[in-house]
């Protein structure tokens, strides 16, 4: 009995990819969500078949899969501008967010001036401002990137500012006692301490960037997945809408996953344990 528990414990400790098969308990975080999604899909399929729901209202998963396969080349082509714009606005939002957080951290005057306005400004529903960007910047890709950046930079500012403030006070005092310059204590202490916080802001920004770009494409684009969804809906091609949504989900997951992976790497290196 005791030997068995010891063995199963040892198994738990074996890193992934080791010779042993992973135990059921180890697979749980993967199995449970996959099983749930599978069940929902099955129910969906069953409901469509049993109640004979019209394709235009709700196509069955199998139909969507067929449609996805058929129009995949088109979808992938449309996915390119959407992905590029999302990545661009994510990068801009991250850079802008961290930059603004640095300004807020180092200038009490600017913090007192800007911070309340920044928060108040967030109360404006940003989607409602999308048409303004068309008025100001036209219907180019830059206009959509600008809107999406605007919609997604806020979480980075907040989390980075919190991270910079949260850097260990006595370590900063140590820097001061060593006559470190502001730039040195920022580079060597504040920034590394804030990295985990910055990344949690960046993860939110990544999802919001994709949303921002899709909204932009709804309004002004001649290409992209957002544009394609509108186009398909105007032709009542519901299965195509779902197929486009699926591709969009995959892109979102991949982009979010990339940021999360980078975060894990950074946390392993810089996390305080």
């Amino acid at each position: 009995m005791t030997v068995e528990t010891a063995q199963s414990r040892a198994l738990d400790l074996v890193p992934f990819g080791a010779a042993q098969f992973p135990s059921l308990r180890q697979l749980r975080p993967v199995l449970l969500p996959v099983a749930t999604a599978g069940t929902v899909l099955l129910l969906w399929q069953a409901v469509c078949l049993v109640f004979r729901i019209p394709h235009v209202i709700l196509p069955a998963p199998t139909e969507i899969a067929g449609e996805l396969w058929r129009i995949l080349p088109t979808l992938l082509k449309e996915a390119i501008p959407t992905t590029l714009d999302s990545v661009a606005s994510f990068c801009l939002a991250s850079g802008l967010g961290v930059g603004l957080a640095i300004v807020l951290t180092y200038s009490p005057l600017l913090r007192d001036t800007l911070y309340p306005n920044l928060v108040a400004f967030q109360l404006v529903p940003k989607v409602a401002l999308a048409p303004l960007f068309v008025v100001w910047l036209g219907i180019t890709s830059e206009s959509r990137i600008a809107f999406s950046t605007f919609a997604s930079f806020f979480p980075v500012v907040i989390s980075a500012a919190v991270g910079f403030e949260g850097a260990d006070a006595s370590t900063l005092r140590l820097c001061r006692s060593l006559t470190a310059t502001d730039w040195q204590s920022f580079r060597l202490v504040r920034f590394p301490f804030a990295l985990p916080a910055i990344f949690s802001g960046m993860k939110i920004a990544m999802t919001m960037s994709v949303i921002g770009v899709i909204i932009g494409e709804f309004i002004s684009a001649k290409a992209g997945l957002g544009f394609y969804i509108l186009y398909a809906s105007s032709r009542m091609e519901t299965a195509a809408i779902f197929a486009a949504l699926f591709v969009l989900c995959m892109i979102g997951a991949a982009l979010y996953g990339a940021v999360a992976l980078a975060e894990r790497h950074v946390r392993r290196h810089y996390g305080r344990r």
């Binding site: 006595s170 370590t171 006692s177 006559t179 590394p192 344990r273």
Partner: peptide
């Protein structure tokens, strides 16, 4: 007039950089 490099300070906690 301010901190000097000829003075070393040890604080209550070790204040090591965790990374």
């Amino acid at each position: 007039a301010g901190p000097r490099t000829s003075i070393g300070i040890m604080f209550q906690d070790s204040t090591l950089l965790p990374w």
